[in-house]
Amino acid sequence: MAELSWVATAPLSHVLKPGHHGAETGGSGVAYTGLSDFALVQVMARRGKASALAKAAKAHFGVAAPLKPKAVAAGGSLLIWSGPDQFLALSPRDGLASPLASLAGPLAGAASLSDQSDARALIRIAGPRARDVLAKFCSLDLDASVFPVGTAAATSVDHTAVTLWRGEDTAGGAATFNLLVFTSFAESLWHMMLDAGAAYGIEVGEASYGV
């Protein structure tokens, strides 16, 4: 029998080239980090079960699931609002185990779950020019006064739905944004983002989520 090899391919693996991109002057205005090895589960409350789900989520994650466009940290997971009565649970991937397995029990009866771990690429955009870059393709007002740390949004980039949330600022005090984009669009959006940030100089990197 032929030897089978199951090497996972991250959505950006063909295009993500760590190092400096774009303008050379004055260092990097922005850093793009492709994050892989995450588990992502879409959690949707069943009809009339929003409060039951909230309770079950609280019991399981230790924090209340977000009822508004927020991203809340819950132990090793991040719960990201994705729509009315629904959220995404983002966590480091646990090998080949289905991420549904650990949630199915605790949320049984209150929620429907879909594995989206492979349906999205996760890109972190940070740096002093992060907002300027995002302004070129994101129509949201990301000013700190209206989009504080922990704010999340379901929005569109280049006519494609994305999930966006603001993480903790960098050590240097620069804003950090996280973008979940559809896997099939990932390369296309990545190229678009490289063009958008080139004027500021981009530091491209890759990392495992949560490490």
């Binding site: 009339g48 429907s112 879909s114 989206q116 771990s117 492979d118 349906a119 999205r120 559809f182 099939s184």
Partner: peptide, 12 residues
Amino acid sequence: LDVQLTSVSDQW
């Protein structure tokens, strides 16, 4: 109806 819909086009 108690039904939930999720696009999983890119998952598989």
